[in-house]
C-alpha cells in the first residue's frame, strides 16, 4: 500500500539555522503515527510545514513532502488552498482558541466542506453527529463559548474530517483537555482514522498519549529524529538513549512515595549551540569523541525500528 504522506529530508531554517534538520517519515492510510519530543524540538514546525503554513520567519531549505504521491513542496498558494482542508487538514492544541468566537460552530465546519448551503447543513449535521456531539441540530447554530472544550475539539475534528482528507495533522489535540475527555477524544480519533482510512500525524509530548493511540512513533530531539519504530517496540526496547531516559522518567504508581523523580540531566541545546555531532551528546551517558564529531545516521536496528545512535548495541 502506498503511503498517504511521505516526508523526506525535511529541513526548516530560522535565520540560517536548521531547527528541523533532515526529518523523514511516512504514514500509511488509517495509521496513527506520533511525533513526540520536548518543547522546541521542531515537532510543531514540522506539523505546520505539512500544511505549508509556516510562520514567515521560517524557511524550508530542503526536503520533499509527498501527499498521496504528489509533491506539495513546490505548489503555488492557489493550489495549496485546494489541498488544505480537502486532502490534508489539521486540529489544534486549544480547541476553543482555534474556533472563531463570533461565528456559529456549524458555519465553521461548513467552511471546510466546500458545499453550498442546503446540502451543506445536512452534511455538517451528520458530521457533528459522527464525532459524537449529542443534539447536533441545536449545537450547529451555537457559538464556541456555549460548548465545552471537549465539544469544541469534536467540532474541530468534524471540520477537519468533513472533506475526507487523506491526512489529519493533530497538534497536541488533547493537551488542553481534562484527562477523561482526553481519552474520549483519542478514542474518537482512532475510530475515525480506522473507519475512514485517514492517516493521522499526532504531535505530542505525552508518552501516555503515544502509548494509547499511535501504531508508530518518531522520537524527535533538537530538530532530528532520534528513533522511529512501532510504538510497542520503541517502548519495550528503546534503541536510543534519549528514548530510554524519557521512558525511565515517567513516574509510576509502583514508585516509592516521595522518592525523587527521574530526570534527564542538562537541558535541550539551543539551535545556536548545535555542534557537528550528535545533538544529544551533552546529556548522554554514552557520549564519546565520535559522538561529538559525527552525527549518527538513522539505522535499522530491528524490523522497521530505526535509531540514530553510535551506541545502539549498549542499549540492547
Amino acid at each position: 500500500m502506498s503511503a498517504a504522506l511521505e516526508v523526506s529530508d525535511l529541513r526548516l531554517a530560522i535565520g540560517g539555522v536548521n531547527v528541523v534538520d533532515g526529518i523523514a517519515f511516512s504514514v500509511a492510510p488509517g495509521e496513527v503515527m506520533a511525533l513526540v519530543g520536548e518543547s522546541g524540538c521542531g515537532k510543531s514546525l514540522t506539523a505546520q510545514a505539512l500544511l505549508r503554513l509556516l510562520p514567515r520567519q521560517v524557511r524550508q531549505t530542503g526536503g520533499r513532502i509527498l501527499l498521496e504521491g504528489e509533491d506539495i513542496t513546490a505548489l503555488a498558494e492557489r493550489r495549496l488552498r485546494q489541498i488544505r482542508g480537502r486532502r490534508i487538514s489539521m486540529i489544534f492544541q486549544e480547541p476553543q482558541a482555534a474556533l472563531d468566537p463570533l461565528s456559529p460552530v456549524g458555519a465553521q465546519v461548513r467552511e471546510a466542506s466546500g458545499l453550498a448551503s442546503a446540502a451543506a447543513r445536512e452534511a455538517v449535521r451528520r458530521m457533528l453527529a459522527e464525532v459524537g456531539i449529542a443534539d447536533p441540530d441545536r449545537r450547529i447554530d451555537q457559538y464556541p463559548f456555549e460548548l465545552s472544550g471537549g465539544m469544541c475539539q469534536r467540532v474541530m475534528i468534524a471540520s477537519a474530517l468533513i472533506s475526507r482528507p487523506a491526512v489529519l495533522v493533530a497538534d497536541e489535540p488533547t493537551t488542553a483537555l481534562d484527562v477523561t475527555i482526553q481519552a474520549q477524544i483519542l478514542d474518537l480519533l482512532r475510530r475515525l482514522a480506522a473507519e475512514r482510512g485517514t492517516a493521522i500525524v499526532l504531535i505530542t509530548h505525552d508518552m501516555g498519549v503515544v502509548a494509547d493511540i499511535a501504531e508508530r512513533v518518531a522520537v524527535m530531539y533538537a530538530g532530528r529524529i532520534a528513533e522511529i519504530g512501532p510504538t510497542a517496540a520503541v517502548f519495550s526496547r528503546p534503541r536510543h538513549p534519549y528514548t530510554a531516559l524519557l521512558l525511565a522518567a515517567i513516574p509510576r504508581l509502583a514508585d516509592e512515595p516521595k522518592s525523587r523523580l527521574a530526570v534527564i540531566e542538562g537541558s535541550v541545546p539551543q539551535p545556536s549551540e548545535y555542534g557537528a555531532g550528535c545533538r544529544f551528546v551533552g546529556r548522554c551517558p554514552f557520549a564519546d569523541a565520535r559522538c561529538n564529531a559525527e552525527p549518527p545516521p538513522l539505522l535499522e536496528t530491528d524490523e522497521g525500528h530505526f535509531s540514530a545512535c553510535w551506541h545502539t548495541e549498549r542499549l540492547a
Binding site: 503554513l53 489544534f92 482555534a98 474556533l99 472563531d100 467552511e111
Partner: peptide
C-alpha cells in the same frame, strides 16, 4: 489560532 485553523481549512 482560529486564523491558522481557517487557513488550514483552505481559506
Amino acid at each position: 489560532d482560529y486564523v491558522a485553523a481557517a487557513r488550514a481549512r483552505g481559506l
